[in-house]
Structures are given as structure tokens and as C-alpha cells.
């Protein structure tokens, strides 16, 4: 490596850090930095009425996996409730990501292939419903899918069903609701990725390849991959921590991990467990994210 190349690389790295500095500053101040408090809290003793006491303890971390049976002191049992809750969250989040990808891709494609003048209009159309706040939107979804709601009324009236579908207060409702709520988080990055590409190239490619499937796999997928990655992350991770949607649509009978953590900081009064649970979640999500991004990048470069 020549000296000139070396100094150019150094300059590039310096500019990378400089450009990222404002974001890092804001995040350190108002997101990552304060999170260190939580890391500390996970190693403290829980306070009598919430909060923590300044005494070191591993209780928070231990009780994630197994805890003392409340009716049988001295006997430690596997905390299967935690695993059940965790598994439900992961399952629903994956389903949500898949569904938003499945319907978000054609939608983003549709928008990206509109004439340039009307494209912003379609983009706005996808975001306008989201200018109404999440809570009221979720309540509105409830009104649509409830037993006396629009969907069931129409189905009953048409004679397709005789008893209304019980959708509300099930995991299905949570999954539908999250897909609705997080859809633009999938569509917008997909759009940004599709839109930058010259459609004529695809059309040209189509003339060269034999099948639609080949075009999709060899030409379209590599182009949109960054968008798919960005969209999946933006949908999957917030789904995993969702609190409001499971509470309203799921009827609160079955917690997701976000609700469970919230319980520890609220009525459960076990802040160290809440802190330890969130640190665990943070590590799992970070690892999953890195593996996913690495794998996706490798595929792209082999392309």
C-alpha cells in the first residue's frame, strides 16, 4: 500500500467519524448514555416500592432464567413463563415482518413505477394514515375487526359466515395490528431502494433472461436487498418491543416481552429484573442484527 493511499484512507476514516459525530452526540446524550444507568440497575437490589437500592445483587439476572418457587421456598424452578412470553414475541414479530414484506413490496414497487410527478402523492398517501397517532389508529383497527365491526358486519350480511369471527383479543389481532402499524416502516425504505434504479434496465434484462423469476432473482432482488434489510429491521425490532398494540388488540391476556418489562417497572416493582431483561433483549437483537446484516452483505458481494 502506497503512502498516498494510506493517508487517503486515514482522511476517509476521519471524515466518516466527523460526519457521524452529530448523530453520535445526540444518541449518547439521549439514548445510549442513559442506558448505561439500566446496565448498572440490573446489578442492584430491588427497592421495596419500586426503584432500586444501592446494594450489589445478581438476583435480577438470575431470576430471568430460574426463580424460587413462591409456594415452595428453597426450590428453584425454571422460569418458563419468561420463555413463553419471549417466544410469543419473537414468533409474532417474525410473522409481522414477513407479512409487511409480502404486501409492502408490491406497494413500494407500485409507487416507484408511477410517473415521477404523481410519485410523491402516492408516498404521502401511504404516510397520511400515520399522521394520526398510534393509539387512536390501534383503537380504530379494533373498531374494524371487532365482532360488531365493519368486516364482520359485511361478512355476516353477505351470508359468508353465520357467526362473527372472533379476531379481537387473539394473537392474530396483535399480528394484524402490528403489520398495519409498522407497514410504512417497510414501504418507505423499499421505495427508496427501488426508486433509485432505472426501470429500463430491468426491462432490458427481461429481454435477455428467459423467465420472470430469473429477472426477479438476478436483477430485482440484488437492487432492493438494502431496502429489504432496512425495512425488516425497522419492522422486526419495534415489533419485538411493542407495548401498545398487544395491550389494545390482544386484550392484555397474553403479554409480549415489552409488556412484561413494563410490568417490572410498574406494578411488579422489580426494576433490576426489568433492567436485566432489557439488557438481554438488547444483546440478542444486536447479535441477530449483526448476523443478518453480515450475511446479507456477503450475499450482495457474491451477487
Amino acid at each position: 500500500m502506497s503512502a498516498a493511499e494510506d493517508s487517503r484512507d486515514k482522511a476517509s476514516v476521519r471524515s466518516a467519524w466527523l460526519l457521524s459525530a452529530p448523530a453520535i452526540f445526540v444518541l449518547t446524550f439521549a439514548a445510549c448514555g442513559p442506558l448505561l444507568i439500566m446496565l448498572v440497575y440490573s446489578f442492584l437490589t430491588k427497592g421495596q416500592y419500586g426503584n432500586v437500592e444501592g446494594v450489589f445483587s445478581l438476583e435480577g439476572w438470575r431470576s430471568i432464567l430460574y426463580s424460587e418457587d413462591i409456594f415452595d421456598p428453597g426450590v428453584f424452578v425454571w422460569a418458563d413463563a419468561h420463555l413463553t412470553i419471549f417466544w410469543r414475541s419473537v414468533k409474532l414479530s417474525i410473522l409481522t415482518t414477513l407479512l409487511t414484506l409480502l404486501i409492502g413490496f408490491p406497494t413500494a414497487w407500485f409507487i416507484a413505477t408511477r410517473p415521477p410527478k404523481s410519485r410523491p402523492l402516492w408516498l404521502f398517501l401511504i404516510t397520511i394514515p400515520f399522521w394520526t397517532n398510534l393509539l387512536i389508529r390501534t383503537v380504530a383497527i379494533f373498531e374494524v375487526i371487532r365482532n360488531e365491526g365493519v368486516i364482520n358486519t359485511v361478512l355476516l350480511w353477505s351470508g359468508l359466515i353465520t357467526v362473527p369471527f372472533q379476531i379481537t383479543y387473539t394473537d392474530t389481532a396483535v399480528f394484524i395490528g402490528m403489520a398495519y402499524v409498522f407497514l410504512p416502516l417497510m414501504v418507505l425504505p423499499l421505495f427508496a431502494a427501488i426508486d433509485r434504479f432505472d426501470m429500463r434496465l430491468i426491462e432490458a434484462a427481461y429481454d435477455l433472461y428467459a423467465s420472470r423469476f430469473a429477472v426477479l432473482r438476478r436483477v430485482i432482488l440484488p437492487i432492493v436487498r438494502p431496502g429489504v434489510i432496512a425495512g425488516s429491521i425497522l419492522v422486526f425490532v419495534p415489533s419485538l418491543g411493542a407495548v401498545v398494540t398487544p395491550r389494545i388488540l390482544g386484550g392484555g391476556k397474553n403479554m409480549m416481552i415489552g409488556n412484561f418489562i413494563e410490568l417490572q417497572f410498574g406494578q411488579g416493582r422489580n426494576w433490576p429484573l426489568g433492567a436485566a431483561l432489557s439488557m438481554t433483549l438488547l444483546v440478542i437483537v444486536t447479535v441477530a442484527l449483526l448476523v443478518y446484516v453480515r450475511a446479507a452483505n456477503r450475499e450482495t458481494s457474491h451477487g
Binding site: 439514548a31 445510549c32 442506558l35 439500566m38 419485538l240 415489552g258 418489562i261 433483549l281 438488547l282
Partner: peptide, 19 residues
């Protein structure tokens, strides 16, 4: 930098909120 920027996505809101 990448992990740092995406960090707010990875923690449930309630945790960031209490912190």
C-alpha cells in the same frame, strides 16, 4: 457507529424511558 445509531430500535421504549 452502526450499532450505536440503531440502538434506540433495539431496546423497548419503556427501558429508554426509565433511563
Amino acid at each position: 457507529i452502526y450499532v450505536m445509531i440503531n440502538q434506540p430500535l433495539m431496546v423497548p421504549e419503556i427501558v429508554t424511558a426509565v433511563a
